[in-house]
Design a binder for these strands. Structure first.
Length: 105
DNA sequence: CTTTTGACTGAGT
DNA sequence: AACTCAGCCAAAA
């Protein structure tokens, strides 16, 4: 029944729509786990079909240690999805934050 | 087998 | 306002 937490994180991240982002805390809250675990999961993730570039910190800041070419690659992908940027490294959470309805679908 | 180490966040000092 | 601390999973060495 209970799979690894990392796997669940990947599933949540995978359902973030194009042009939207979620924070680590939000994803973590879906499972009542720590935000750090989300970060660990994404760091460990090497699966290209998981849109990990759509996960940012609570300030909208991009990950410094983004695993696929750094935050520059992350920013590039987000811009390609029409995500609004506040600064070079911060997305506009008010416009692009994805609010998930419930724990599971 | 044990230890280390990472993409975070909110509360307390 | 800046800093510390606690929370807690999985893979690699």
């Amino acid at each position: 029944m209970n799979q690894g937490v990392f796997k669940k994180v990947y599933e949540i991240v995978h359902m973030i729509p194009k042009g939207k982002v979620m924070t680590y805390g939000q994803v973590a809250d879906q499972f009542k786990i720590d935000a750090r675990v989300v970060g660990w999961a994404l760091h460990a993730n090497r699966n290209p079909k998981v849109p990990c570039h759509r996960v940012v910190d609570r300030n909208g800041r991009l990950a410094e240690a983004y695993a696929f070419g750094g935050r520059d690659e992350q920013r590039k992908r987000l811009k390609g999805e029409r995500v609004i940027f506040r600064d070079k490294n911060h997305v506009n959470l008010l416009k692009c934050l994805f609010r998930m309805r419930l724990h599971k679908i």
